[in-house]
Design a protein around this nucleic acid. Structure first.
Lengths: 336, 336
DNA sequence: GTGAAAGCGCTAACAT
DNA sequence: ATGTTAGCGCTTTCAC
């Protein structure tokens, strides 16, 4: 079933069929209806490869993230996919893992597949000169929209959440309620990771608290490692009276350690994920607004594809906010 | 950069270039090396659309699931993507949601995109005659491999986990340790959902326990609804002394209700997800072996694409197993 | 073993 | 408003 069959059936040329296919207005309504009817009847569907060949586009958007099995990325992919689909855009998914080499490979794969645009979720590159150069080159060939990652590169549009301010606010609320020795646990210093710790430090500074390097720990991105760490710190009697973590997963590990040791203190996580709801106590968490970032990113993509890229902000910053649950509430956790 | 450029640079015809591109053996090694070198040097990469047009294949596999933001689907997608990628196959992702109409639409989209195969994760269709007919038709046009869904349809290969037996085993272990009034909470009766409840019932029967319909509840796929339900049942003094749930998410909700009410009894979930590790108490859960199912499914896809489909089992069944954690251990939970 | 040439199904410039 | 035709970049007969 090709354009030729439809043309023949309607007694018109393939050009006319192609026109109605592409919604050209240079076709008489009556003819259009005729063609449309034939398409309907014969259940015609244009060959995407042929179309791709001609237009150099198959209306596919590459989505790259480190790991869809992670709740944060999974949610982002889900939101993005939904919105892209609504606009008739298909999603080709790549899970890069954390290695820079693999990420480059994936970008190249997307490029080779001639995707119309790439949405990068999370911070895929370090700020090494080399790596930046690489992505600069890619961005020259295909528009890139990043979600929660910031880079000042031509043809790259960044949609980020200002997590920093909520981290800062958290510190301030904790300090205001008497908790000034705040353990900070993080796993990685991606763009987002840097913003978070910056917020933590800003908060300390603003409250006139001197940063204590012994209260800052880097762990692997696992629940159990964090649990083990906090358990150890508690045993060592490291003096801290609150815990903040860069991710819910880590925060939950910390909570487990607290519960096991019979201790209690405020804990604040980030991502406002299902883990925050399920954990015990339920976890106060920073919501980084994927529900806003993702649609916004998709919106940018569609505008870029319409050629309206130059009317778009290179950075869009959304506010984050704190969702209070049992692990910390500003009212109830004041030290007496 | 096209095949013509390479041909010109090597002083051969495009046919020869095409041959080395496709690994034909009808080309002299020396010529091959020449062409290969030129490709390397000029950084040539074949246009996938043109290739697609000729071969009617872009080496893309459609992956369909209801919702990647769900931990179970996310894990499956992650595993499948990884293995497909290893074989040079790309993933085009579709999140269908639960409505049958949407699922049909997505299948059609994949068909229209001329994917080489479709991997269906979870049970997408009910067993209505109509719906089956629909997927029968699709399966005639593109091979389908399902993960954790069973349908006896030509050209559909099913890779499933026998969750039933672990549900049965769970009931038996519970009963053996004195817990014979087992609350069963489920959200949906997909293929997998049916197997699970069947296992529950088989277990009861095997242990000579009469099934009590008042102990079986259907809830929405949310943590909080389950929590609310169990809280209510506890308040009503419904007599049950253990809880099984079709999913970890529900089981965690049940645990929350128990903890809040100060009660304690065995709880068993399913999926062995991160939730099972993070919850309090940690959740005994049934592992449905995605790590085995997914690679197996991908393996089938590659074989089908090589034309070895007829040498493949139409159903592959993997065993599940119980992972014991704090919420139930056969040794420690015996009623005295 | 290699080349010439005919498609694959569509888009778009050009002609009418 | 509609038709003709030349590509798009590759695969694949069919000759040689």
């Amino acid at each position: 079933m090709t354009i030729y069959d439809i043309a023949k059936a309607c007694g018109v040329s393939i050009a006319t069929v192609s026109r109605v296919l592409n919604g050209s207005n240079k076709v008489r309504p009556k003819t259009r209806d005729l063609v449309l009817a034939a398409m309907q009847e014969q259940n015609y569907c244009p060959n995407p490869f042929a179309r791709g060949l001609g237009l150099d586009s198959m209306k596919m958007i590459g989505i790259l993230c480190e790991d869809v099995s992670d709740a944060f990325f999974a949610k982002a992919v889900s939101l993005v996919e939904h919105d892209l689909r609504e606009r008739g855009l298909d999603v080709i998914l790549g899970c890069t893992g954390q290695e820079v080499a693999a990420k480059k490979k994936y970008l190249q794969i997307m490029l080779n597949k001639h995707v119309d645009a790439i949405i990068l979720i999370g911070s895929p590159f370090r700020d090494d000169v080399d790596n930046n150069q690489y992505i600069v080159d890619i961005a020259k060939k295909v528009p890139i929209v990043t979600i929660n990652s910031l880079m000042e590169i031509d043809n790259i549009y960044c949609v980020v959440c200002d997590e920093s301010s909520s981290f800062r606010q958290s510190v301030e609320l904790l300090a205001a309620s008497g908790h000034k020795s705040i353990l900070y646990i993080y796993d990685r210093l991606t763009y987002s990771g840097q913003q978070k710790i910056k917020g933590y430090r800003d908060g300390l500074m603003h409250m006139g608290i001197k940063e204590n390097p012994k209260l800052i720990y880097k762990v692997r991105h696992t629940f159990s490692d964090t649990q083990a760490l906090v358990t150890k710190l508690l045993e060592e009697n490291l003096p801290f009276d609150a815990i903040m973590a860069s991710e819910d997963l880590l925060a939950v590990g910390a909570e487990k350690a607290l519960v096991a040791s019979g201790r209690s203190m405020p804990v604040i996580g980030c991502n406002n994920s299902i883990l925050a709801e399920c954990s015990t106590p339920t976890l106060t968490s920073i919501d980084n607004r994927l529900e806003m970032l993702c649609p916004n990113a998709v919106d940018m993509v569609t505008k870029i594809l319409r050629g309206e890229g130059n009317a778009l902000p290179s950075k869009s910053i959304f506010p984050s906010y704190l969702v209070f649950r049992d692990s910390f509430h500003p009212d109830i956790f004041s030290k007496k």
